[in-house]
Design a protein around this nucleic acid. Structure first.
Lengths: 212, 212
DNA sequence: TCTATTTTTAACCATTTGGTTAAACCATTT
DNA sequence: AAATGGTTTAACCAAATGGTTAAAAATAGA
């Protein structure tokens, strides 16, 4: 009678169930804090099955980590290298794409950045290299061009790039503290993030406007 | 002959040695990733001595975590509630104080925020409550006043506050990735952070200027 | 110097944790 | 229905880990 009592969709196969469960546990606890047993429980299967599908904790982690890293850079390289789009619109596209991604996957920023931060010798940082990061060069280049064409005021491309990422990404890493110190509810925070797409775009655009 | 071969100052007493070692290990690995043996090794003492001075891992963690939390809010509440200081100067004071703090303790943002993020049931979030967070109210209030007095353009206080924190704090959490994707050296990054104090201040001030 | 107290250590202990194994289960083919 | 091959499980195992204990070493007090 009670058939679908597991925490994951019943029609998923075991591998999918494991991946979904592993994401949930790893995203919230991190590699060191995650327990294989917790993942098995979450997936509603036996622990040995984890090792049947993914040899080890590290291997399982790697699969999920690689996918998460893939979301680090927004899929908008084409936009930034397109000379037909105004710089302001590029900023808007960036913020929109980036913040939307984190609204869908709010745990990924903390997960990825924490693992890379505490990566002592484990060499996960090299996985970052493997990921294509041409987009970064495109963005930096695009900023430089915009400055030269006096489309925006003079700024250090690296600093502006860091500002863009900070404004879009940080809120999802600091949300527990921010919610606590401001006392806002989950709903309010969610609304803030929705508003933030435009808010941040305009905040940046307003700041880098070229004024004669 | 070889007397001072430990990684910590020799003239420190054991308790201080342990605290210094625990900070180093905990800050870089996080609670779940830290090993009591690693802390003991780092301090150059026996593992049992850890438990002699601090009953348990959790207790030791709590001491260090509380101190770290204390640095979360800059010690500038007086500045923000002082009506004699221009809003722009308040921004400058905030960025200066905040970024300087993280340059001295670059591991704290990731450490504190990660623990609070993955705080499921452990109740470390309640330690945030115990810390005085009146400063937050002062900042939010100060923003509201500045908007009303048309000292700055109309902004959502919460969003601006979040922008300020994001711009100052994020770089120290994302530094490994940022360094990797941009290819800049440790020295360059350090210089960037030094420049960032003014860079971020002006970035914000420029964005929220009241323009008739 | 002898005693009492505090500090430090080596050796253990119990539990947790990632991982393995051999058997059971199940679906498909013959 | 029997054989086959992939899937799942219960029971184990060895190493790691947080924590304890009893004794040794150092320190202070008389």
């Amino acid at each position: 009678m009670v058939k679908n009592r597991n925490k994951v969709k019943a029609d998923e196969n075991s591998e999918e169930k494991i991946l979904a469960a592993a994401k949930k546990v790893l995203f919230s606890k991190g590699y060191a804090g995650a327990r294989m047993q917790d993942i098995a429980d979450e997936a509603g299967i036996n622990k040995a099955l984890l090792h049947y599908y993914f040899r080890s904790k590290e291997k399982l982690f790697e699969v999920i980590f690689k996918e998460a890293i893939g979301k680090l850079m927004p899929q908008i390289s084409s936009i930034f290298s397109d000379p037909g789009i105004s710089f302001n619109d590029k900023i808007r596209a960036f913020c929109n794409s980036y913040i939307s991604t984190w609204m869908e996957h709010p745990y990924i920023p903390m997960f990825v950045l924490h693992e890379l931060h505490s990566d002592s010798g484990k060499g996960f940082l090299k996985l970052v290299e493997e990921t294509r990061f041409r987009p970064v060069k495109d963005v930096l280049n695009s900023i430089e061009v915009a400055v030269k064409k006096k489309e925006i005021r003079k700024v250090d491309p690296h600093q502006l790039f860091l500002n863009m990422i900070s404004l879009c990404m940080f809120p999802f890493m600091g949300s527990p503290v921010f919610r606590k110190v401001t006392g806002i509810s989950d709903r309010q925070f969610d609304n803030m993030m929705k508003a933030r797409v435009d808010e941040v775009s305009e905040f940046i655009i307003e700041s880098i406007k070229y004024r004669k």
